[in-house]
Design a protein around this nucleic acid. Structure first.
Lengths: 192, 192, 192, 192
DNA sequence: AATGAATGAGGATTCATTCAT
DNA sequence: GATGAATGAATCCTCATTCAT
């Protein structure tokens, strides 16, 4: 019954979103998912596997929501669409986003599998950068560096807004997005 | 005896660096710090306070190391010096850096105090941006947005290197730093 | 379907042989017997009953294998045949033998029924001793004492061999068997 | 505090005596020993170690009580003294004896250490057999076989009495002891 | 009859915190 | 001030048993 498997995953996600990974107890998950504690173990070998599965699941959700329509339009349009979606996603207080942020900076463990999945899910973005590189439009840097320079800011700004540290209006966000895009562009002689 | 207070802090930092916040137990801290478990409670009300104090302490160390000589030179020199120090710091496998990364994305709690400290410690950087704004050199964005666009990439790239995901050579880093600086600059007619 | 009842019994026996009574779980039995967990409860009221039934079953197997042809030959031949069979059985690493050893020294419980069965199954051996007593061949002791003196050594020696503590050659075993037989004999004047 | 260490051991012994090793739960031990559950773990790494330590401890007690004065008198006197003490010990309903019986027939595990200890503790008995062998008094068998033939019956008879299966009077026991001794003797020409 | 998913009590173990010395 | 033994609540996980299908 996929139903229960998912209820457990969503329950864990919710709890992590609210209290961090440290606050995740199997009893709580059971309660939130409205199943018995033992039931969780029918679907997940142990707590580690539950968290790992959740990470994968959340990653897939994020990638799907951020990369929708990623291949429509010019490189610039495609980049900016992804940037905006990332920013919008990052602003949400959804369990998915809140739990997502918990995983990103864990002590490096079991990350091998996660990395592979991450790579695969975000491949479209990777390809976008590579196309830009081929067309000599984009600065000659490793795609990961390009990501760091042009995409991390979208998430960082979203995080700050979500946490109530600042309020950006639409104009500022559009400007920031544009600056990020131009940051990795190779300037042409007449314009910039 | 400040000595013991600090030994406890350093011990906690080391343990968090190695095993994450979840792996932090008071007995371990006691052992690592070579004090009795009970002694910790003379210096810190409870575990939460210990962690909070450590966060503050680590933050101060980071700020100090990153903002050294922050006021020497032109705006560009000052920015790039900070960017580079941040990047260098972020690459380290030092307990300070490794534990620092654990805190950044915790579930939002007790953050009020931390925020105030963060604000105060990074004020020099804030002022740097404000000077740029006053001189109409820098894009009209909230300093926090400017930070997100121009500084987060330094940390993100450092993290990827530290984790062994990429290797950047010095040229790439210099380029990235330069791109980050130019990203927030208002372009002048004749250049870039 | 006697088939399933037995499959369950054999599965339990195998598991006990491998991991001791403590290692016996109903799900394991189900898996090993290739039935559903719930099915076990059609054949056995609960785990205790399963173990009890198994004890009885194993006891019956042991008795049957040890007492085959028990009534052929002279008293001495009959005794020695049983002794040897007991010894041979005890040396085996068969599930039957390995699980049998687990029961023998359990905390005294439910033993009333087991005792009765044991008595009945080993009656032939009991009769052998009684015949020896009637013929004034055998020392005037309770058959149980005669058993202890003359038969326990067969099992004890087999156990030690099975556990790899010693290696006895055929001559030693024959000698031991003979000593056990003579131990309970009333010596006649001219011989011994 | 050796006191607590021993209280825990005695508590475990008592519980095993009453309910078997399967019935041993750490909470019960804690309750019986009048310590908190966590305290047990200050003295024993885990349940396995507790049981192992108890086995060693019980073994030492048994050996000490059975081998007292083992070196006084003729070989025969020494043998019979040990036989009697073993028998007497085996008849007891003491926790020490009752728990001792639980260990003897466990699935073969961790036994390496236990065996070494057993060997060492029962060395005096071993030596007794070897002296008999040297003097050509005792049948040419491995000491372990001699033990099986001459000593196991003492325990087996005691067990049967303890369990209420038989009642032996003093004469019978003395006879049994004597038969066991004579069983391993090499008969001399005129007597036996 | 048979299944096997679901249950939840119970077990081992950890760990923040206290307190007598 | 300092110690570290002791505590016991809380955690993860297992497993005998039930019951809807």
């Amino acid at each position: 019954m996929r139903n229960k498997h998912d209820r457990i995953l969503r329950a864990a996600e919710k709890i992590i979103a609210a209290g961090g990974i440290q606050g995740l107890s199997m009893q709580q998950v059971a309660k939130e998912a409205e199943v018995a504690a033992g039931t969780i173990y029918r679907y997940f070998k142990d707590k580690d596997e539950l968290v790992l599965e959740l990470r994968k699941d959340v990653l897939a959700h994020v990638a799907a929501s951020v990369l929708a329509d990623h291949d429509v339009g010019t490189l610039e349009q495609r980049f900016k669409r992804i940037w905006m979606k990332m920013h919008d996603f990052g602003k949400q207080r959804s369990p998915t986003n809140l739990s997502y942020e918990q995983y990103a900076h864990l002590p490096e463990s079991n990350t091998e599998e996660i990395r592979a999945i991450e790579m695969k899910l975000f491949e479209p973005l990777h390809r976008l950068f590579e196309q830009g590189l081929e067309q000599k439009l984009i600065q000659p840097l490793h795609p990961r560096a390009l990501y760091a320079i042009s995409m991390e800011p979208a998430m960082a700004m979203a995080r700050a807004m979500r946490r109530g540290l600042v309020e950006y209006d639409q104009k500022e966000i559009t400007l920031a997005c544009d600056l990020c895009w131009r940051a990795i562009l190779i300037p042409t002689t007449q314009t910039n």
